[in-house]
Amino acid sequence: MTEPTVLISGASIAGPALAGLLTRAGCTVTVVERAPALRPGGQAVDFKGATHRTVLERMGILDEVRRRRTGGQDQTIVDAAGRPQAVIPGEFTGGEIEIRRGDLAEILYDRSGCEYVFGDTVTSLTETTGGVDVTFARAAPRRFDLVVGADGIHSTIRRLAFGPERDYVRYLGYHYALAELGEELGGGEAQMYNEPGRMAAVGGPKASAFFVFASPELDYDRTDTAEQRQLLMDAYRGAGWRVPELMARIPRAREFHLDSLSRVTIDRYSRGRVVLLGDAAYGNSLGGFGTGLAIVGAYVLAGELRAADGDHRIAFARYEELMRDYAKVAQRGSAGPFLAPPSPLRIKLRNRTFKSRFLLGLLLKATDKFATGIELPDYASGS
């Protein structure tokens, strides 16, 4: 493989995963990340089935991911008085291997072997016959052979290379929030509470507190966490169970993240020398497949660049061909109505799913089918 220079925007999961694979293939990689450092902790993410397991193994991180796994934990759905209504088994919420997002990011970062530029972002892309001229908010301009947008649902690279976010991102009617409110909050037990259009959960590795709520699309400053915390508190005003206690802690949360459940609809993952990866390409519907898609996408993109000896036109076309159908799981709906059903009846019906071995079995089979729905090339052997 030739030795192209590659800029990756985004240092969550997809970016560092791709960086490590490309570095080992001989590329010179730079990762730029808006945040000042890697984000620690965060919600748990999971991997399901043979495809995810095979990619982790070929990346050389399977043993370390297993060593730092959280272990699936059952979650009890309760009513306003705290009485159990149903139990969501850990195998459903945690997949085959569950790990905190921050731990996974650290594993990938430690093995990426490339340059990281934190606290900066791309401001312009100009493609020429010889590469892509890139300007940054803080760093000096540079030229790269290829640019990868692995910077999430609100991708700066997608906006600069393809057009405004409104042309590609469709809001799915729900927002979610993650807050670290203290390990003692759940008392070691994972519990989830619903009211129509609202869900609140405590305990377990997803985060010490996790919220999903239906609402009109919210307009807010994504850099202003104080505004976001207030939006969440407003959305849960008047709720029962332990929600008032949780909301009282939100202003002091050690970590806090709020975002929309949205779908990306884009006819091509690449344009010229620029390509999209992870949520920037597939979207975030909170269906439990985002991390798996990011890891598999990184593996395929790096493998195709290697197989094409760095010819991005061939590699990007093959990446698109292989990932388009597999990534359709992100287009099949949203976890919002499942996690926060819109009516009391829908809440009861959802709960019955977890009381029926037959229905739960169908759900588990469906998730396994989605996770393994790609013929994974073995790039090391050339097949």
Rank of each mutant, 00 (worst) to 15 (best):
G173V: 02
E321G: 04
G42Q: 04
R159P: 10
R24S: 05
C114N: 03
Q75S: 07
G15Y: 03
R346L: 15
Q331G: 14
R69W: 06
N351P: 08
I266Q: 10
P251R: 02
I77N: 10
V29T: 04
E217F: 13
L160H: 07
L181E: 04
N351V: 03
G15C: 04
V65D: 01
A25D: 13
R158L: 14
L56A: 01
A302C: 12
R352F: 10
G82H: 07
R346H: 14
P84C: 07
I61E: 00
L246D: 01
G152T: 07
G130D: 14
S262I: 04
I61V: 01
E195H: 03
G290R: 05
G382V: 07
S9N: 15
F354Y: 15
F144W: 11
L345R: 05
F144M: 11
G15E: 00
H257F: 14
F144A: 03
V122F: 13
I107S: 02
I8K: 02
A44D: 10
M247A: 02
R24A: 07
I107Y: 04
G72M: 10
R34K: 15
R159Y: 08
F338Y: 14
Y168P: 05
L181I: 06
T123V: 14
G149A: 07
H257D: 05
V31F: 13
A44W: 08
D120E: 08
L7N: 04
Y269P: 02
Y220T: 03
A105L: 06
R271D: 04
S260H: 13
S383Q: 15
C114S: 03
Y326T: 06
A207T: 14
V300Y: 04
D79T: 00
I107T: 02
R273S: 09
L21K: 03
D309M: 09
R263S: 11
R34C: 10
T51E: 06
G197P: 13
G90T: 05
R252N: 08
F338M: 13
G152D: 13
Y319V: 07
E189P: 04
F47E: 06
R66Y: 01
D79V: 04
M1P: 15
F354A: 07
I153E: 10
G303I: 10
